[in-house]
Design a protein around this nucleic acid. Structure first.
Length: 684
DNA sequence: CTGCCTCGAGTTCG
DNA sequence: CTCGAGGCAG
């Protein structure tokens, strides 16, 4: 075999065969030859290419793991943004989505494609002349990270595809995931080797895709389903179902359970059947994506914010999992409240390994009749915080122990009290170390004194070292004292000193909030700070003077007066003043009127161009108000990405909605003409 | 006194 | 995000 042309032909033939069998095995799951036979083909090609390096092509199956490790990922701008999806949590919301689309389209019926919403990571992969060019993560939807090298290691993702379809350059979108079986196998191996285990398949897939060395990625059992054509040149399909058919035909792995539905009832059927049988899949699916089929309708429907009106994610209800309640622990909060929490046998709930969950208070535990040793149902409500729903009574053995609140504080041993008509138990020892630790964290936290570089571990270290015994001690710290602590270099110490320095200038409302007076949160602190020129004036204020402030009643006033009567607290205030923490300002009689005066806003979900704080500040500056829950009085809900339950309430109440663009416009140009509104009464 | 509207406090995992 | 509780109008 020394004839050059003969060798090239042989190599091409081997590649063709390998690509064919690879496709049969990894994409179609219908192998024709044994693994051993396949290995022989691969070895032959490898040997041939080793002898004739000039024959090696990037799209050769031997080159899946070709490139050297990277230092960092490049950023890739998506030609067409990857949109996010609106959610529907029940049949009513799905129907609402469908009705809206039908109204805008002015058509009563249209076909929809249903696909399982796979729990993985979205990627965009481009092809030119049939060869894989680039692959990128979704990122923020506009630009992502260049993970081409890593995507090439996924065997079901073709390096070359047929060009017969008439497509020119194009981009496909897919979901990279780790099969459950592969995940389990990998973790077993890692356990054998004493390596740390991955928490769940999704995190494992994310970690694998973000490896700088593609050789590491290649050892991880990743797979991919292609679910859409992002953009394309040449002869393009005219519907989503047709796009999926073409993609499958030219070699991509599409999900076998995709289905074209004629109407919303068929969508419901599809959803319900997978709700029951999704556990049988070798991958996690958290819902069904419903897309209107004709592309021409996508054009007509367009998108709101970054969510297309022509697609929706119909989510499966929160997963419930049963696990063992090992014990009930107690945290002591900043206010001295004793907060019970469940210590659980670790369990996966919707892809996250949960080992703790709050139990709120003693009454709640009693009401649910939760006992230590019980098997309990755990769910993740609102996608985030796990909750113990209740015990599985049928699995009781009789060994379970009912819970009762400890009678003494688990940290300082002081007698615990439960004020009449209150749900919480409190440790009333003002000098309880647990309380002080929480107070210090609160004091230095964001929104309060906001000291850069002071996190949980440093506050704890400072207390342990005896350097900080009250919050004012922060201001007498020296750089030398900081460098004396473990794992603290001169540079970090310097940063922290600068952070402390900067915090001396925080305005009065933040200082009042930072002190951690019971019932005084950010809003109340602002009300108080507005009414007084400095901290001394607040310290000397009577309960009567305080209750005269709208929004402050007897309970809050009393709490403030009691706080400033306490000699220890007075001493801390004096120390703070001496250290230069003593904000003064003009007392504002009234909030300046602006274009948004009289309007109230509620924010839900994240905004892209501003933080929540910035948005709030701008609304307030124009005379508007921002509150945390929707009510009949709310003028607008500002709907960002991934809105929460507040949107549901707003829909129920018929509150007017704003997207980010509309909010920005309103901040710049003032409110649109208001619909007929009941007249407001003057305030005396 | 009652019902509504707000605000405060605590919260999980990575 | 959710729950509990304070403030206030009716």
């Amino acid at each position: 075999m020394t004839n050059g042309a003969g060798v090239a032909e042989r190599a091409a033939e081997l590649r063709r065969q390998i690509d064919y069998h690879n496709h049969r095995y990894h994409v179609l799951d219908e192998p024709e030859i044994s693994d051993a036979e396949f290995d022989i083909l691969m070895r032959d090609l490898g040997a041939l290419e080793a002898e004739h390096p000039e024959l090696v092509r990037p799209e050769s199956p031997t080159q899946r793991v070709g490139a050297a490790p990277l230092d960092a990922f490049d950023s890739i701008q998506h030609k067409v943004p990857l949109l996010s999806l609106g959610n529907a949590f029940d049949a009513v919301e799905l129907k609402a989505w469908h009705t809206r689309a039908a109204r805008i389209l002015d058509e009563s019926s249209f076909a929809m494609v249903c696909e399982l919403k796979i729990d993985g990571l979205a990627v965009a992969v481009t092809y030119e002349e049939g060869s894989l060019k680039t692959g990128a993560t979704r990122g923020d939807g506009l630009k992502g990270e260049d993970v081409t090298q890593n995507l090439r290691t996924i065997k079901s993702l073709p390096l070359v595809v047929s060009t017969d379809s008439g497509l020119g350059r194009f981009e496909v979108r897919g979901e990279v995931y780790m099969p459950r079986s592969g995940f389990d196998r990998m973790n077993l191996e890692r356990a054998d080797q004493g390596l740390p285990l991955f928490a769940n398949p999704r995190n494992a897939a994310a970690g694998a895709l973000r490896q700088l060395d593609p050789r590491v990625t290649a050892t991880r059992p990743l797979d991919i389903f292609i679910y859409a054509l992002g953009w394309a040149e040449g002869t393009t399909p005219d519907s989503h179902a047709e796009a999926l058919r073409v993609l499958k035909e030219i070699g991509f792995r599409t999900n076998p359970h995709n289905r074209l539905c004629k109407n919303i009832d068929e969508v419901e059927d599809y959803f319900r059947s997978w709700l029951e049988s999704r556990e049988s899949l070798d991958y996690g699916a958290d819902g069904v994506v419903v897309k209107i089929n004709p592309f021409e309708m996508h054009q007509r429907l367009g998108e709101v914010g970054r969510e297309p009106r022509w697609a929706v994610a119909y989510k499966f209800p929160a997963t419930q999992v049963v696990t063992r309640l090992l014990d009930i622990g107690i945290n002591v909060g900043r206010t001295g409240s004793l907060n019970p929490f469940a210590i659980l046998e670790p369990v996966d709930v919707g892809g996250v390994r949960v080992k703790m969950a709050t139990l709120h208070n003693e009454d709640d535990i009693r009401r649910k009749d939760i006992r230590v040793g019980d098997w309990v149902t755990v769910e993740r409500a609102g996608e985030v915080i796990p909750q113990v729903v209740g015990p599985v009574v049928s699995r009781r053995t009789g060994q379970e122990k009912p819970f009762s609140m400890p009678e003494i504080c688990p940290v300082c041993g002081t007698q615990v009290v439960r004020p009449e008509d209150e749900a919480m138990h409190y440790c009333v020892n003002a000098t309880c170390p647990a309380q002080f630790y929480e107070l210090l964290k609160h004091f230095v936290g964001r929104g309060m004194m906001d000291i850069d570089g002071m996190g949980e571990s440093l506050t704890l270290a400072l207390i342990d070292a005896g350097l900080v015994n009250d919050v004012a001690d922060i201001y007498s710290l020296t750089a030398d004292q900081l460098t004396g602590l473990e794992r603290m270099g001169e540079k970090s110490a310097d940063n922290i000193m600068r952070g402390i320095e900067a915090s001396r200038g925080r305005p009065l409302d933040r200082l009042v909030f930072a002190l951690g007076v019971r019932h005084v949160g950010f809003e109340t602190a602002r009300l108080i700070a507005q009414a007084f020129p400095n901290i001394d004036a607040i310290r000397d204020a009577s309960a009567e003077r305080l209750t005269a402030i709208p929004g402050i009643g007897p309970k809050i006033a009393d709490s403030i007066v009691v706080y400033f009567q306490e000699p220890k607290n007075r001493e801390v205030i004096e120390k703070l003043k001496k250290a230069g923490v003593d904000p003064h300002h003009e007392v504002q009689e009234e909030v300046a009127a602006g274009p948004l005066t009289g309007l109230s806003f509620v924010l839900t979900g994240g905004l892209d161009t501003m933080t929540r704080e910035e948005t709030t500040a701008r609304i307030v500056a124009l005379g508007g108000s921002v509150s945390s829950s929707v009510s009949k009085k709310t003028s607008f809900v500002v709907v960002g990405t991934e809105p929460g339950s507040k949107l549901q309430k707003a829909l129920a109440l018929g509150t007017r909605q704003l997207n980010e663009a509309e909010m920005l416009k309103l901040l710049e140009e003032g409110p649109p003409p208001a619909p007929a509104e009941p007249e407001r009464k003057g305030n005396g």
